[in-house]
Protein backbone atom coordinates (compact mmCIF):
# COMPACT_ATOMS: atom_id res chain seq x y z
CA UNK A 1 0.00 0.00 0.00
CA UNK A 2 1.00 3.57 -0.50
CA UNK A 3 2.84 4.77 2.53
CA UNK A 4 0.42 6.64 4.72
CA UNK A 5 -2.55 5.23 2.81
CA UNK A 6 -5.18 7.69 3.91
CA UNK A 7 -8.85 7.19 4.51
CA UNK A 8 -9.82 8.57 1.09
CA UNK A 9 -7.53 6.03 -0.60
CA UNK A 10 -9.21 3.05 1.00
CA UNK A 11 -12.64 4.59 0.53
CA UNK A 12 -11.93 5.28 -3.12
CA UNK A 13 -10.82 1.73 -3.79
CA UNK A 14 -13.80 0.21 -2.00
CA UNK A 15 -16.59 2.56 -3.03
CA UNK A 16 -15.68 4.17 -6.31
CA UNK A 17 -13.46 1.88 -8.38
CA UNK A 18 -16.00 -0.96 -8.47
CA UNK A 19 -18.28 1.29 -10.55
CA UNK A 20 -15.65 2.02 -13.15
CA UNK A 21 -17.02 -0.19 -15.93
CA UNK A 22 -20.45 1.29 -15.51
CA UNK A 23 -19.12 4.81 -15.38
CA UNK A 24 -17.15 4.25 -18.58
CA UNK A 25 -20.30 2.98 -20.26
CA UNK A 26 -22.17 6.06 -19.15
CA UNK A 27 -19.45 8.42 -20.33
CA UNK A 28 -19.17 6.63 -23.67
CA UNK A 29 -22.88 7.07 -24.12
CA UNK A 30 -23.05 10.77 -23.41
CA UNK A 31 -19.73 11.85 -24.87
CA UNK A 32 -19.40 11.66 -28.64
CA UNK A 33 -15.67 11.09 -28.81
CA UNK A 34 -14.85 7.74 -27.35
CA UNK A 35 -11.15 8.44 -27.41
CA UNK A 36 -11.64 11.17 -24.82
CA UNK A 37 -13.53 9.02 -22.35
CA UNK A 38 -10.46 7.89 -20.37
CA UNK A 39 -9.47 11.51 -19.78
CA UNK A 40 -13.01 12.33 -18.68
CA UNK A 41 -12.92 9.38 -16.34
CA UNK A 42 -9.70 10.66 -14.87
CA UNK A 43 -11.26 14.07 -14.32
CA UNK A 44 -14.31 12.58 -12.63
CA UNK A 45 -12.04 10.58 -10.34
CA UNK A 46 -10.03 13.65 -9.40
CA UNK A 47 -13.18 15.59 -8.53
CA UNK A 48 -14.52 12.71 -6.46
CA UNK A 49 -11.26 12.14 -4.64
CA UNK A 50 -10.68 15.79 -3.83
CA UNK A 51 -14.18 16.18 -2.54
CA UNK A 52 -13.80 13.02 -0.45
CA UNK A 53 -10.79 14.47 1.33
CA UNK A 54 -13.23 17.02 2.80
CA UNK A 55 -16.34 14.91 3.38
CA UNK A 56 -17.29 11.44 2.33
CA UNK A 57 -20.62 11.34 0.50
CA UNK A 58 -23.44 9.22 1.94
CA UNK A 59 -24.24 7.47 -1.31
CA UNK A 60 -20.96 7.16 -3.18
CA UNK A 61 -22.46 5.72 -6.33
CA UNK A 62 -25.04 8.45 -6.80
CA UNK A 63 -22.40 11.05 -6.02
CA UNK A 64 -20.13 9.53 -8.62
CA UNK A 65 -22.68 9.62 -11.40
CA UNK A 66 -23.94 13.09 -10.58
CA UNK A 67 -20.34 14.30 -10.61
CA UNK A 68 -19.85 12.66 -13.98
CA UNK A 69 -22.97 14.29 -15.39
CA UNK A 70 -21.97 17.72 -14.11
CA UNK A 71 -18.52 17.35 -15.56
CA UNK A 72 -19.91 16.45 -18.97
CA UNK A 73 -22.34 19.37 -18.78
CA UNK A 74 -19.45 21.74 -17.93
CA UNK A 75 -17.38 20.47 -20.78
CA UNK A 76 -20.23 20.76 -23.22
CA UNK A 77 -20.77 24.38 -22.22
CA UNK A 78 -17.10 25.19 -22.31
CA UNK A 79 -16.43 23.58 -25.64
CA UNK A 80 -19.67 24.80 -27.19
CA UNK A 81 -20.47 21.43 -28.58
CA UNK A 82 -23.67 21.74 -30.48
CA UNK A 83 -23.88 18.81 -32.77
CA UNK A 84 -24.22 16.06 -30.24
CA UNK A 85 -27.34 14.77 -28.64
CA UNK A 86 -26.06 15.33 -25.15
CA UNK A 87 -29.05 17.09 -23.59
CA UNK A 88 -31.27 14.13 -23.98
CA UNK A 89 -28.70 11.63 -22.89
CA UNK A 90 -27.72 13.56 -19.81
CA UNK A 91 -31.28 13.37 -18.61
CA UNK A 92 -31.27 9.65 -19.11
CA UNK A 93 -28.94 9.65 -16.14
CA UNK A 94 -31.92 9.51 -13.83
CA UNK A 95 -32.85 6.23 -15.35
CA UNK A 96 -29.31 5.01 -15.03
CA UNK A 97 -29.30 5.80 -11.35
CA UNK A 98 -32.52 3.93 -10.86
CA UNK A 99 -31.21 0.98 -12.74
CA UNK A 100 -28.25 0.59 -10.44
CA UNK A 101 -28.51 -2.57 -8.50
CA UNK A 102 -27.31 -2.59 -4.92
CA UNK A 103 -24.94 -5.48 -5.47
CA UNK A 104 -22.57 -4.55 -8.21
CA UNK A 105 -19.54 -6.56 -7.28
CA UNK A 106 -19.17 -9.48 -9.57
CA UNK A 107 -18.83 -12.88 -8.03
CA UNK A 108 -15.42 -14.25 -7.18
CA UNK A 109 -15.73 -16.75 -9.99
CA UNK A 110 -16.52 -14.12 -12.61
CA UNK A 111 -13.67 -12.06 -11.30
CA UNK A 112 -11.26 -14.97 -11.66
CA UNK A 113 -12.54 -15.61 -15.12
CA UNK A 114 -11.97 -12.03 -16.21
CA UNK A 115 -8.52 -12.06 -14.71
CA UNK A 116 -7.55 -15.32 -16.36
CA UNK A 117 -8.76 -14.02 -19.71
CA UNK A 118 -6.77 -10.84 -19.27
CA UNK A 119 -3.75 -12.92 -18.34
CA UNK A 120 -4.11 -15.04 -21.46
CA UNK A 121 -4.26 -11.98 -23.66
CA UNK A 122 -0.86 -10.75 -22.58
CA UNK A 123 2.14 -11.38 -24.80
CA UNK A 124 4.11 -14.50 -23.86
CA UNK A 125 6.83 -12.73 -21.90
CA UNK A 126 4.52 -10.35 -20.14
CA UNK A 127 2.24 -13.21 -19.22
CA UNK A 128 5.15 -15.23 -17.87
CA UNK A 129 6.30 -12.31 -15.74
CA UNK A 130 2.83 -11.74 -14.30
CA UNK A 131 2.47 -15.43 -13.57
CA UNK A 132 5.80 -15.76 -11.79
CA UNK A 133 5.40 -12.54 -9.84
CA UNK A 134 1.72 -12.68 -8.91
CA UNK A 135 0.86 -16.38 -8.82
CA UNK A 136 4.16 -17.91 -7.80
CA UNK A 137 5.24 -14.94 -5.73
CA UNK A 138 8.77 -14.89 -7.11
CA UNK A 139 10.91 -11.81 -6.65
CA UNK A 140 11.94 -9.75 -9.63
CA UNK A 141 15.42 -11.26 -9.56
CA UNK A 142 14.10 -14.81 -9.36
CA UNK A 143 11.69 -14.18 -12.21
CA UNK A 144 14.48 -12.65 -14.28
CA UNK A 145 16.74 -15.66 -13.71
CA UNK A 146 14.05 -18.14 -14.57
CA UNK A 147 13.07 -16.35 -17.75
CA UNK A 148 16.60 -15.46 -18.76
CA UNK A 149 15.74 -11.76 -18.94
CA UNK A 150 17.41 -8.86 -17.29
CA UNK A 151 15.64 -7.32 -14.32
CA UNK A 152 14.77 -4.14 -16.16
CA UNK A 153 12.81 -6.15 -18.72
CA UNK A 154 10.92 -7.97 -16.00
CA UNK A 155 10.10 -4.62 -14.42
CA UNK A 156 8.76 -3.20 -17.63
CA UNK A 157 6.64 -6.29 -18.31
CA UNK A 158 5.24 -5.99 -14.82
CA UNK A 159 4.32 -2.37 -15.35
CA UNK A 160 2.50 -3.17 -18.57
CA UNK A 161 0.86 -6.27 -17.14
CA UNK A 162 -0.55 -4.52 -14.11
CA UNK A 163 -2.30 -2.02 -16.37
CA UNK A 164 -3.97 -4.82 -18.29
CA UNK A 165 -5.02 -6.47 -15.03
CA UNK A 166 -6.48 -3.19 -13.79
CA UNK A 167 -8.53 -2.94 -16.93
CA UNK A 168 -9.81 -6.46 -16.36
CA UNK A 169 -10.63 -5.84 -12.72
CA UNK A 170 -12.22 -2.40 -13.01
CA UNK A 171 -13.26 -2.43 -16.61
CA UNK A 172 -12.23 1.06 -17.69
CA UNK A 173 -9.06 3.05 -17.63
CA UNK A 174 -7.16 4.64 -20.44
CA UNK A 175 -7.68 3.25 -23.89
CA UNK A 176 -4.86 1.22 -25.34
CA UNK A 177 -3.58 0.62 -21.85
CA UNK A 178 -2.62 -2.90 -22.80
CA UNK A 179 -0.81 -1.75 -25.88
CA UNK A 180 2.47 -3.51 -26.38
CA UNK A 181 1.57 -6.08 -23.81
CA UNK A 182 -1.30 -7.68 -25.62
CA UNK A 183 0.32 -8.09 -28.99
CA UNK A 184 -1.11 -10.85 -31.06
CA UNK A 185 -4.39 -10.60 -29.28
CA UNK A 186 -7.34 -10.83 -31.59
CA UNK A 187 -9.70 -9.44 -29.02
CA UNK A 188 -9.57 -5.72 -28.99
CA UNK A 189 -13.26 -5.30 -29.16
CA UNK A 190 -15.19 -2.77 -27.22
CA UNK A 191 -18.49 -4.28 -26.43
CA UNK A 192 -19.76 -1.41 -24.39
Amino acid sequence: MVKGMSAPDAWFVAEILPHEAELVRYLSRVWPNRAEVPDLLQEVYVRIYESATKTLPDVPRAFLFVTARNLVADRVRRERIVSIDYTQDLDVLNVVLDELSPEQRVSARQELRRLSEALDELSDNCRAVIWLRRVDGLSQREAAERLGMNEGTVESHLSRGVRALAKAVFGGGPARSTQGCAEGSAREFENG
Binding site: M1, V2, M5, D9, F12, V13, L17, Q42, Y45, V46, Y49, A108, E111, L112, L115, S116, L119, I130, W131, R134, V135, V162, R163, L165, A166, A168, V169, F170, G173
Partner: peptide, 18 residues
Amino acid sequence: RIAYIRLEAAWNEAARLK
Protein backbone atom coordinates in the same frame (compact mmCIF):
# COMPACT_ATOMS: atom_id res chain seq x y z
CA ARG B 1 -2.32 9.23 -6.65
CA ILE B 2 -5.57 7.84 -8.01
CA ALA B 3 -3.85 6.07 -10.88
CA TYR B 4 -1.42 4.53 -8.45
CA ILE B 5 -3.91 3.27 -5.87
CA ARG B 6 -6.04 1.91 -8.72
CA LEU B 7 -3.16 -0.22 -10.05
CA GLU B 8 -2.25 -1.32 -6.58
CA ALA B 9 -5.83 -2.34 -5.86
CA ALA B 10 -5.93 -4.28 -9.13
CA TRP B 11 -2.71 -6.06 -8.23
CA ASN B 12 -4.17 -7.06 -4.89
CA GLU B 13 -7.33 -8.22 -6.58
CA ALA B 14 -5.25 -10.22 -9.07
CA ALA B 15 -4.14 -12.41 -6.17
CA ARG B 16 -7.18 -14.42 -7.15
CA LEU B 17 -5.08 -15.74 -10.01
CA LYS B 18 -3.30 -17.87 -7.45
